[in-house]
């Protein structure tokens, strides 16, 4: 069985994230690039299954600029067997549909029984990629799994949805996304980090991908795209009044709220 886990290199949410005000694109030099944590959880789920079941190959896949390979290396250090890195300058500023087309084509080329991805990235916060990939790959899709159980020919789990949870199952090959409720990812061991250096990273460009198999054109201007019109930095919020409690702080907050008609 082959499980492909999608990893997205994102600006570290522990630091200040910056948008380039000229291009509207993420300023990748301004903050450290890390694997989105939800992707690490997805990988953890795949690795746990591989350890239990045997005969499971775990592959990590990213579409990201050429210089962001460290994210994939971390995935390899955690225990993935190999990595696929789609990097192409023509993909700078790719929108959701273009990204989904490229990932779907890369998944077709790599082959998969199960694709696991995070439910939403911390930078884009869209939460639509898994559903798009299920459509483009004509595979059953399950978004927002809070638990998952993988067998030789199916995936099953609890899906957190609006107002409740569903028990859902799908025959493989399938595409699923997972939530924060999944177990914490492991830290790569030193041996894992050393081994990662020897593991294969396949480098692909747009020209290597079977885009036609997912109904996509090589030329991205062939389809309508989402474009950024303007970007502005919001003025930072400044601190207001800070007081130290002298026994009446509760009263003072109540008065503050009443004055602003908030109570």
């Amino acid at each position: 069985m082959k499980i492909v886990v999608l990893l997205k290199p994102v600006p570290d949410t522990y630091g200040q994230r910056v948008l380039d005000l000229e291009t509207g694109l993420a300023d990748r030099a301004a903050s450290e690039t890390v694997i989105d944590e939800i992707g690490e959880r997805a990988l953890e789920a795949a690795l746990r299954h591989a350890e239990q079941a045997g005969d499971v190959e775990v592959v990590v896949l990213s579409m990201a600029p050429a210089d962001s390979q460290s994210a994939l290396r971390k995935g390899l250090a955690m225990g993935a067997a190999s990595a696929v890195h789609v990097a192409d300058e023509r993909l700078a500023g790719a929108d959701y549909v273009r990204t989904a087309e490229v990932l779907a084509a890369a998944l077709r080329k790599t082959g998969f029984d199960l694709v696991i991805t995070g439910d939403a990235s911390t930078d884009g916060t869209g939460g639509v990629m898994a559903a798009m990939l299920a459509e483009l790959l004509d595979a059953p899709g399950i978004t927002r799994l809070e638990s998952l159980e993988i067998t030789a020919d199916a995936v099953r789990g609890t899906r957190a949805t609006d107002g409740g949870s569903m028990v859902v199952q799908a025959a493989l090959p399938a595409v699923v996304s997972v939530t924060e409720a999944l177990p914490d990812p492991r830290f790569p061991a030193l041996r894992g980090i050393m081994n990662a250096k020897k593991k294969p990273v396949e480098q692909l460009t747009l020209d290597d991908l079977p885009l036609d198999e997912v109904g996509a054109a090589l030329d991205e201007t062939a389809s309508p795209r989402s474009i950024m019109l303007s970007v502005a930095e919001r003025p930072p919020r400044s601190a207001g009044t800070i007081i130290t409690d002298e026994g009446d702080a509760g009263e003072r907050i109540a008065a503050f709220l009443a004055e602003r008609r908030l109570a």
Binding site: D95, Y96, V97, A100, G124, T125, G126, G127, V128, M129, A130, A131, M132, L133, A134, E135, L136, T143, R144, A160, T161, D162, G215, A216, S223, P224, R225, S226
Partner: peptide, 20 residues
């Protein structure tokens, strides 16, 4: 959750741009 699911699937079918 169901809204994002609907949006993603429709965008993939129409190859229409998404604003998330």
């Amino acid at each position: 959750v169901e809204g994002r699911e609907a949006a993603g699937r429709l965008a993939a079918r129409l190859r229409a741009p998404i604003a998330a």
